[in-house]
Amino acid sequence: MDAKLLEILVCPVCKGPLVLRKDAQELVCKGDRLAFPIRDDIPVMLESDARELAADEDVG
C-alpha cells in the first residue's frame, strides 16, 4: 500500500488513525477495534465490510 495514501486515510467511523497490518491485508482502527479489508491493493473503507476485532486480538 502506498505510504502517502496511508497517511491521509482515517477511520470512517471515528476519523481516527489507522494501522496497516500487512500480513492480514487490512487497516485497523484501534479506537473502534475495527479492521477494514484491503482487496487488490484497494482499501475498502465501508463500515459494513469491516470486521470487529476479537477481545484478545492484538491491534498492532
Score class of each variant (00 low, 15 high):
residue 45 M to V: 11
residue 37 P to V: 06
residue 13 V to L: 15
residue 52 E to R: 10
residue 49 D to A: 09
residue 5 L to Q: 11
residue 51 R to T: 12
residue 19 V to G: 06
residue 16 G to H: 03
residue 49 D to F: 09
residue 7 E to F: 04
residue 50 A to G: 01
residue 42 I to N: 07
residue 34 L to A: 04
residue 29 C to L: 05
residue 52 E to V: 08
residue 21 R to V: 12
residue 8 I to Y: 04
residue 46 L to A: 05
residue 42 I to T: 12
residue 23 D to R: 05
residue 49 D to T: 08
residue 47 E to Y: 06
residue 46 L to T: 03
residue 47 E to L: 11
residue 32 D to Q: 06
residue 27 L to T: 01
residue 29 C to H: 14
residue 31 G to N: 10
residue 55 A to S: 08
residue 7 E to Y: 03
residue 14 C to D: 10
residue 40 D to C: 06
residue 31 G to E: 07
residue 27 L to F: 00
residue 55 A to C: 06
residue 49 D to N: 11
residue 9 L to Q: 06
residue 51 R to Q: 06
residue 21 R to L: 14
residue 43 P to E: 09
residue 17 P to F: 01
residue 21 R to A: 13
residue 9 L to K: 04
residue 8 I to F: 11
residue 28 V to Y: 02
residue 53 L to D: 00
residue 15 K to R: 04
residue 21 R to P: 09
residue 10 V to E: 11
residue 47 E to S: 01
residue 20 L to G: 05
residue 35 A to T: 03
residue 8 I to D: 09
residue 9 L to C: 10
residue 7 E to G: 00
residue 15 K to F: 06
residue 38 I to R: 03
residue 39 R to M: 08
residue 28 V to F: 05
residue 10 V to H: 03
residue 12 P to R: 09
residue 37 P to R: 00
residue 9 L to D: 10
residue 33 R to E: 14
residue 10 V to Y: 02
residue 25 Q to P: 04
residue 36 F to T: 01
residue 43 P to C: 12
residue 17 P to A: 13
residue 12 P to H: 07
residue 17 P to S: 15
